[in-house]
Write a protein that binds this DNA or RNA. Sequence first.
DNA 1: ACTATATACCTAAGATTATTATGTATATTA
DNA 2: TAATATACATAATAATCTTAGGTATATAGT
Lengths: 108, 108
Amino acid sequence: MNSKLFRGSLDTIVLKLLRDKGKMYGYQIAKEVKHISEGRFHITEGSLYPALHKLERKGYLDTEFERVDNRTRKYYRLSPKGKTAVKEEIKEMKSFLTGLSLIVNPEK
Amino acid sequence: MNSKLFRGSLDTIVLKLLRDKGKMYGYQIAKEVKHISEGRFHITEGSLYPALHKLERKGYLDTEFERVDNRTRKYYRLSPKGKTAVKEEIKEMKSFLTGLSLIVNPEK
DNA sequence: ACTATATACCTAAGATTATTATGTATATTA
DNA sequence: TAATATACATAATAATCTTAGGTATATAGT
């Protein structure tokens, strides 16, 4: 990623996107994150693919391969375990956002 | 810290607090972060002190020792270099917060 | 007197995770 | 034909946090 601040948020972002979109492949996730964040976040392949593999190993993601235009896509979707986990992760991220806001934008 | 999300934000938080408060010592920083974040963030000593030493080494912080109640406090304050850096870091953090919000709380 | 908690600093081993660079392969556009 | 986009992947390195431990004083409770 572009910013050191990003460290630690990647998993949650991936899980959240997959919850919203149903299924996605890696390359698509990177593009989508850049788009949704309005150009702020640029996920590099070197962080994305290992993160996806880790989430798959942990049993949070199920996968299926699909061939489109002679290129292989590896689609990811949330497993039941991943669906449970994503709820907690999003809750944590919202709390994290609130905490950071309190520090960066202290009221008055 | 309590949450993996915190990874990467510690430096910026420390610099921001020092900009607001003028000078602070380590223990005080940990308490203050917990207080301002309304209990969300618990900085552990094992992450805080190395981070302070790193920022000092980088020339962002100046230090002075003070003895209070027979205990030594090491006070930190922003150096001129640190004052320059903190502006950029806060700008980055606000952009980061905006980006994360767009992902976690997509409009409609 | 003893114990726990709070204050106040510190370091070290290990784990986690991002960065940077590299590799393979196909399709499209200039 | 060369560059860019699509699409996957891994490996060495660096950065940074976690966990655990260490030292020391003051205070409050039993």
